[in-house]
Amino acid sequence: MSLRKEAWKYLLSYYSWDNTAEENKAQVRRKTDEYFRMKLQWKSVSEEQELRNSLLRGYRSLIERDVSRTDRNNKFYEGSENPGLVLLNDVLMTYCMYNFDLGYVQGMSDLLSPILYITQNEVDAFWCFCGFMELVHRNFEESQESMKRQLSQLTLLLRVLDSALCDFLDSKESGTLCFCFRWILIWFKREFAFSEILQLWEVLWTGLPCPNFHLLHINELTMKMSVEDILCRAEAIYRQLAATPDLPRNVQELLGLSEGKSPTPSTDTASSPQPLSPSQAQEMELTDSVSQSQPDSSIEILPTEEASTSQSISP
């Protein structure tokens, strides 16, 4: 736990890998000042002033509403007087000041909650959250271009990995994979136990073994498999794809395989921090990973009986 608390500061670019301990300390002092300066900005807006600021008012009421709907079964956020709720609220409000154009978008509270839980510190949580948002802020933009792109990238991967499943989803009008939206937006947060998310995210933050590694996790049975197992399988899928001759060019690019065949991170992730390697690479039966899947009862998307029409619901 305490190792994780320190490691996350590096993984999320709050601390720099090249800094000395002294330099990191100085960084914390600077960032602490900066945080409280931004916090004061929204704290000091009077009620009367806020009446003339609909954007801020909107963020505030939305955050309030969502803080009361985020991980309330977790000890750190349960009950109505829990200090964890205030921290969640304050960090999200301050993030609006940090990035006012983006502001608060639903899903962000899910991304912050585990970070706050691990760091147990408002300032650390804020800057780690900013580091996380640096990776995913495009997913929250109003155009939703990034989300749409990832869903189509996912279709592309699924087509290569399991075209039968792809056909099946098409026949059930689910070929656009819109049911995967939440999985991608909040990085599987709701699909695994809280403790497993901690491990999954830190692996994904390393940017290893390839860009877009998160997309390879998707053909799995959510909430019913261990995260360890899924990481191994995803890495196995990646290694199999990397070793596949004649892989379509767009798939190669997606996984950073386009320059030669070596499974090293592409330039996208060149600046990513070093390891925390995602566990032992094992060669596994690729086919298992999808053929065992059954629809999760909580996300019933397919009329299981029959489909007499077949159509696409592409946006």
Binding site: D66, T70, N73, R182, P303
Partner: peptide
């Protein structure tokens, strides 16, 4: 009274 906010789309039948 206590439930997670909806992200994206969820399904019921």
């Amino acid at each position: 009274a206590v439930h997670d906010l909806t992200v994206g789309v969820e399904f019921g039948s």
